[in-house]
Design a protein around this nucleic acid. Structure first.
Lengths: 211, 211, 211, 211
DNA sequence: GATGAATGAGTATTCATTCAT
DNA sequence: AATGAATGAATACTCATTCAT
């Protein structure tokens, strides 16, 4: 199942690889940018900060990125690649759709915690630019992958047959991500996390289960 | 029901009123800011743009706002006030909880369309500042209000009794707002809107209904 | 005769005066700009150099000039005002047209020597900008003034009656200025200057005299 | 007559030839530079623009030109070569000095129109550098050639015998070029051109004719 | 000779903020 | 309260030039 998505993932990877020059300056700059911007915020990060950390010259930045703004989609793409990679990895070991959903929620919370700052910068960065559509484009492979989970679940009669899989895919992913973000951004107590996740799963289950 | 929230709403209003001077300069500046920033984006909008549109002097801005950054929570607050006001207004005419939900979805889509730009600027503005918690604080009255809808629905045995109302309130509001945003940001065809909304409502209904 | 040109001169002066604020910051910046650019050349002069010399803040420059480029027409205008002022002053004491011509040549050489650098920067500055027409516009009062000299000379039967005064005015002014520039730019020996000027005057006289 | 100038011309040519490599890269770069700079102006033209148009690598530029600045004298030299070549070509068919003068004026106007942009860039370029003397040096063969025209005219008793030929040569060339430039830069109506040229010729004739 | 990736110095311009009036 | 002239810090981006291949 995931097989056919590897292609898309690969196409992303290819894009990335296309940028992989000799000494991997593209990657070095991108990683430095993520690190610095995550810490200081997009506005307060100067190109100078980034190149200093990356150990390249000021002008080199512009050999790989058209502008400061062009960093954001690259970062977002990077984040999605990591996210989707990690989630696929975990989920593929499960065969039951409900277990998949649980693992998906688990992993989303986990990644959200780890990449909290990057997630925030992607939101703000893409919003600034009025390029929220780019976000949707970047998320496309994620949506696609989850749609297939849903379809399989429907085929196995475990999921509600009449749902609109495309829309539902987006609603579920958003619901879970947002719940996770609210959990970590709001800095709620860690001890409630399992209860919180259960509630999210229960909410989804009631919506998704076959009836 | 709304009664007890008037307090909080008032506290917001009070904040606003405190700033209401003679010629309503606070409001004039705020409205100008919303208009200009919605159009040009936060970054490309200068205080100069705002005061020019408001017809006041440069320095006057700082009599009402501590800094440019301080505009965002004010704008967000203004948006929430409008949103919550409009939704309450519409919803209060309904007695059935499912009708309330429908009207709530309708109105959210409506407002999202109308205030699309402002919503985007609030996201990016608050994210920039790493002050996403402020957003939650501002949304508090909205969450509270919806919780009461849920509670009433539970009491009337129409809604699922074991839900965690606080969390569910947030999940539902987020789900609907996000669906609406995706609809208008993605610029999907208008003719699918009713189907789309129905799907959202159906999704929620399956989760929320008593069983 | 000069009376009627005072108007135009005044209009220039007025323009200048309009810019004369409280502490004469406009003039201070303009004079500093002339000084620094004359010395270092336009390209190698930074706004920082100018404001430092003028004793104002960086941003203050932009209160009085739209851009670095906008300096050049201002400088050119300033130069013309000085030039025309000085020449008029000297020439008005002469009644004979040939004496006027002599004094005009004398004074042109004199001013060219004194303002050599400024003249060069005006040439290059206006050429850079492809705004050579501006130069013509700025020179207009000069051309006008000289036309009247020619007309008076024609009326007194001393100058060739069938010349085209407007074109001749431009040709003569250019001829003399260019001769002077070539003299000082080429750094010819000072001892030849009187002979050189005589040759220029003789050349002109043969062209202009009534016959 | 031109014979003796061939040397100088050759010296120029030699300079050029010295740079003529295998695939004529020098010429390719020079022509590209003229084209691009004429269009965009010196300041806004980057070496990158030039090499891109020339179809050579960035570094190749520096094999043929020491720096960006070094382009200007090369362009000016190129312009003079073209100008002098064209004018000589036309004038040599005339035997009468007055006809030569007419043809000289005609051709100067013609070339000024055709190379307007290049002329402007030479002015500004050389002025920027404070290297106006270079311009004189480049023009030397032109002055020399015209001096000989004058000498021949004097010998044939058609021209005024007591003129200073060297200075007069420069004055005349400048007068005509400047008149032409003013004509095309000022964008005067084309229908006046013949009248305009006649006036220039008449002005010169009165100065130059034997008396 | 040719290349073109890498460099890093250099700067015009913007704009949030202040404060004397 | 209101003004708006003045400030000066801050920075994205350019591009001439170099040099290892």
């Amino acid at each position: 199942m995931e097989q056919q998505f590897n292609e898309k993932t690969d196409s992303n990877a290819t894009t990335t690889q296309a940028k992989q020059t000799a000494d991997g300056k593209y990657a070095k700059i991108l990683q430095s940018a993520i690190a610095v911007i995550s810490e200081k915020g997009l506005d307060k990060t100067s190109i100078s900060d980034i190149v200093k950390k990356a150990g390249v010259a000021q002008g080199t930045f512009y050999l790989y990125f058209e502008s400061k703004t062009a960093l954001i989609p690259a970062i977002a793409n990077n984040l999605l690649t990591i996210t989707l990679g990690a989630i696929k990895e975990k989920v593929q070991h499960e065969s039951d759709v409900w277990r998949k959903l649980e693992v998906f929620v688990d992993e989303t919370f986990h990644i959200t915690e780890a990449y909290r700052d990057v997630i925030v910068l992607c939101y703000s960065g893409l919003a600034i630019d009025n390029s929220l559509e780019k976000w949707e484009a970047i998320y496309q492979p994620y949506y696609d992958w989850f749609e297939h989970i849903l379809i399989k679940g429907i085929e196995s009669k475990q999921l509600y047959a009449h749902m609109h899989v495309e829309w539902t895919s987006r609603m579920v992913i958003n619901l879970v991500e947002n719940a996770a973000e609210r959990f970590y951004i709001g800095k709620e107590q860690q001890n409630t996390i399992e209860v919180y996740k259960s509630e999210v799963i229960a909410f989804l289950q009631r919506s998704l289960e076959a009836r």
